[in-house]
Structures are given as structure tokens and as C-alpha cells.
Design a protein around this nucleic acid. Structure first.
Ligand SMILES: [Zn+2]
Ligand SMILES: [Zn+2]
Ligand SMILES: [Zn+2]
Ligand SMILES: [Zn+2]
Lengths: 154, 154
DNA sequence: TTATTATTGATAACTAATATCAATTTCATA
DNA sequence: TATGAAATTGATATTAGTTATCAATAATAA
């Protein structure tokens, strides 16, 4: 089994456990949305609208509200992250590895989103929080600017 | 003259220059909003609604749209920063010193906002951008968690 | 199978941000 | 200081994204 397939299976397991722990129900719609999201959006940052439009083509009976609610469930169960990059639309990304914490660089010209991680920054933030007697629960770090190709075509 | 009064005068000068450069007009409303914002909100992070409610008490003839538009002008002229801390409402803060770049720690319990600055983080971000051939235009960094007092009362 | 409970999808309601527009104000010019 | 073009104002409407509502339907425990 490929690592990606393995990961998908792990997320499915986590989600199923969440469903039964919370006494929720597993439905056709949730299955479809899971398959689409974890099949086609790995490493991407999709808006609810985008995912809905995508799914609607194959499964026209699935409504927007269901996609919206299911993505919230994915987040709640810890298999997806919700992101907000300042364009007013929430974006969701599948969590690949729970230890893989990362941040984003967003091109203000073409909108492309790049990911990065940096241990030094992370430990700085922990130190800053500690120094201020602040219990760090989470943090948000984004770089906005021009990606290399948009930079050239200026 | 106190440093704060000096700073306020400097911002006023910058704003007046902006007004005349852009061929805009100076009005009673803009004066009132400037005075209120730079008089009472130094070091704070006020929403449009809050500032409007505050001003309305003394100057009931000033409308919400004017406060909203004037804060946009303050930002455009470089005398105020617009912030967004994930509660869906834009917040504005007077720029105290143009060299004083800082970030925020937000208590998820009481909503208090603390500021911090850290050179090491800044140089890390510059390096990360450089490494990815990304032209850093700006960045956003926030720590969310519990402040020391909310932490204790848990 | 049945009864209970959750889910669904259409749509309404909500919120913050922004656009519209006629009346008013500012200000450059005369 | 009068005039007129241009910007501003405040009330209100519109938009966009999110979230709530609810009757019909589907899932599941007993
Ligand atoms: Zn990401
Ligand atoms: Zn981090
Ligand atoms: Zn600040
Ligand atoms: Zn910084």
C-alpha cells in the first residue's frame, strides 16, 4: 500500500471513531465527501465552494450545507485543518501527518499557496509565550508576497 | 511636548499630506475621528463598531459609514494598521512608531490582546522567503492561548 | 420491524463589509 | 465673498460568506 493510501485509511479510521464516539451516523454523503477530499485535495487548500462545485458534478444530489457541515466535522475530528488567508473564505486541507505542523506563503499576485516549516521559529514562539506566562494553544503564521514566477513577470 | 503628543502631531501631518496629495478634503468628521482614535486608542485594537459607538455618544451626527471609511483612509495613509484576529471583525490600531513592527498574542478566554516583537523570528522569515525566491511583502503572526490570569482561574 | 435520533437539502437569517445616491460640504477659482 | 466642480456624508441597500431552521428522509439501536 502506498503511503498516501495508508494515510487515507488512517484518517478514515479516525473519522469513523469520531462518528461512533459522538453517536453520529455514517452516511453516503459523508463517504462521498471524504473520498473526494482525501482523494483529490491532498496538499491543497480548498474552499467550501470549490469542493462543493467539484462534488456536485458527480453527485448532484449533495447539497452545499452538507459539504459545509462535513468539512466542519473533519476539522472537529482532527483530520482536516481550517485555514483563513485573508480573502474572507475559509479553506480546508487534509492533515497528512499529525506531527507535520506547517505554515503558508501566499502569492498576492497569482494566489498560489506554498507551505513551509521551521523549527527555529517554532521554538522562538514557545519561548515568547513562556516569557509572557501565556499558555500557547495555537498560532498562525503567514508570509504574503510575490512568488518567483510572478516576481519575474513584473 | 510629551512623546505621545508629538507622535499624534506627526500622524496628523502625515494624514494632512495624504489628504492634499490625493486631492481629498478635510472635514469636521475626519477631524473628530482622528482625535478620538489617536487620543483614546493608542496601543489598543479597536473594531469599527466600537469606535463608532464611542464617537456616537459625543457626536451623534457622525455615521457608521464615515467611521468605517475614515479608518480605511487612516490605513491607506499609513497612520493605522488593520488587523484581523479571526473573530470576523477588522480591528484598527494607531501606528506609534513606523519602525516598531510587532505581532500579537490573543487570549482565547478573555480576548485581551498582548503585543510582542522578536528579531530572531523576523530574520527567520526573511530567510525562509529568500530561500523560496519569494518576495516578502508582509506577514502575519499571532499566538492564541490563555493569558496568565485566565490560566490561573481554570 | 419499529422507534428514536441524526442527517439532509432547500432556503432563510445573520453578520461584516462594501456600494449606492441624493443632499450637503469643501475649496479652488474668479 | 460668491460660484461651481468635486468630494463627502449618512441613511440605506447590497453583497458574500457563514450559520440556523425545519420538514422530509435515512440510519441505527432495540
Ligand atoms: Zn497547508
Ligand atoms: Zn508553527
Ligand atoms: Zn498591535
Ligand atoms: Zn514580523
Amino acid at each position: 500500500m502506498t503511503p498516501v493510501a495508508q494515510m487515507k485509511m488512517d484518517r478514515r479510521k479516525t473519522f469513523n471513531e469520531f462518528i461512533s464516539r459522538k453517536r453520529l451516523k455514517s452516511t453516503k454523503q459523508r463517504d462521498v465527501i471524504f473520498e473526494e477530499f482525501f482523494g483529490n485535495y491532498m496538499g491543497r487548500h480548498v474552499t467550501v465552494e470549490e469542493l462543493y462545485e467539484d462534488i456536485k458534478r458527480k453527485y448532484p444530489y449533495i447539497g452545499f450545507a452538507t459539504v459545509y457541515r462535513t468539512l466542519k466535522l473533519f476539522r472537529e475530528s482532527g483530520i482536516a485543518s481550517e485555514r483563513n488567508f485573508g480573502d474572507g473564505k475559509a479553506r480546508y486541507e487534509p492533515i497528512r501527518d499529525e506531527r507535520e505542523h506547517h505554515h503558508h506563503m501566499i502569492c498576492t499576485e497569482c494566489g498560489k499557496i506554498y507551505e513551509f516549516a521551521n523549527n527555529q521559529v517554532e521554538s522562538c514562539l514557545n519561548q515568547i509565550a513562556k516569557l509572557n506566562e501565556f499558555k500557547l494553544e495555537n498560532h498562525k503564521l503567514e508570509i504574503y508576497g510575490l512568488c518567483s514566477s510572478c516576481r519575474e513577470s513584473r
